[in-house]
Design a protein around this nucleic acid. Structure first.
Lengths: 203, 203
DNA sequence: ATTTGATGTTAGTGGCGACTAACCGAAACG
DNA sequence: CGTTTCGGTTAGTCGCCACTAACATCAAAT
């Protein structure tokens, strides 16, 4: 240990390792979304990334940690995105439009992650659940803050209910994505969801 | 067996049995909503209704059947409700308003069931899943039918996306219900959700 | 009053799957 | 180069929990 904060070796081994870790998280999100956290074995998860079984333990301390990483990463990504948006947009209208656009983009683009996040919270260990809840609460408060400037007539509790309702609307893609037959293109879906969300929040 | 369709004995035993069955389904919905289907053991489920362990097998062939009963019952209740609504209301506006009111009432009143229905589909055995999907598809088509009369300008695929988005919005109570602190009364929440859903669908 | 059968009980059993152990080959590093 | 460390392997182990067995009890038919 030389001193202080290390950035260190961009060694070839560590790169492959980072790749594998990302691949595991990706595959896990898809598998968990399709068959549920409990319905996926570590052997299957390993097989999905081309290694088999307990190799996952070289990257995560256990199955629960994989789930935790997916959920916490997602919550942090959402929060970061929201704060980036809020740092830029001045007026409440522009801010809300940007928040909606960002959230819809995320939900449509990472439908698997959204599905897992909505379904498997109950399976999280207390520590990870707490971390995720904290991130989510802050995220909600950013929305409520913007809504409050737009709708000062409404109570904060009502605004919170409205924010959650908007999330439910925007997060609906995992459900409609499972319908058979012709589905509209992703861009079309984004447009619809953005429009509906705006209208619902402004009603 | 005397003949044909039997209605038979409203015997005291069969009444207690029906009660117990209902109690099991109720407790199961609450437990599954709180800790997830996989996170609940049959012993716990039994304990929640005052019997312990394998007594559940006197009422259901297995744990999976309990989940299936909850989900299929819920889907059937929603479908029945929608068809009752559509049999009464003449104009598309009135029909949509009534559909929204009914669905919101159900979602807010039976938040546990809604939560389980949204989260645990993946755990269903194929037969039950198929039955549930059929019921749900018909339910969606009723909504799309009404929307189509109100918004003939929009393509059916878009209407289906909109219907799913509306469900996500109306089903958001299980999520907002978990927030700490003062929450608005159920009737207030219903009003907010009805208003937002209407606005989103009409936008 | 007797028999039947439904609803419970407690004590197993069996399988599945997360996790551990022991061992390999090859980067990384002096 | 020698050695360490890392990412992988295969072969267990261990605990949990859905389900089964065997038995008790009491409503309900006869």
């Amino acid at each position: 240990m030389t001193s202080g904060t290390e950035v260190e070796a961009p060694t070839q081994r560590s790169l492959r390792k980072a790749d594998r870790r990302a691949a595991i998280l990706d595959a896990a999100a898809a598998l968990f979304a399709a068959r549920g956290y409990a319905g996926v074995t570590l052997d299957e998860l390993g097989a999905a990334v081309g290694v088999s079984g307990p190799a996952v333990y070289r990257h995560f301390p256990g199955k629960g940690a994989v789930l935790a990483a997916i959920l916490v990463d997602a919550s942090r990504a959402l929060l970061d995105g929201a704060e980036r948006v809020l740092a830029v947009d001045a007026t409440p209208e522009a801010a809300l439009r940007a928040l909606i656009r960002f959230h819809v983009e995320f939900a449509v683009g990472d439908a698997d992650v959204i599905a897992v996040q909505e379904r498997e919270v109950t399976q999280l260990d207390p520590a990870a659940r707490h971390e995720m809840r904290t991130l989510q609460r802050t995220y909600v408060e950013h929305w409520v803050g913007v809504l409050d400037r737009l709708r000062p007539d409404l109570a904060e509790e009502e605004l919170r209910v409205r924010a959650h309702a908007a999330f439910g609307l925007m997060n609906s893609t995992p459900h409609s994505a499972r319908t058979p037959g012709r589905r509209p293109a992703a861009t079309t879906i984004r447009g619809i969801l953005e429009e509906m969300t705006w209208a619902s929040l402004m009603s």
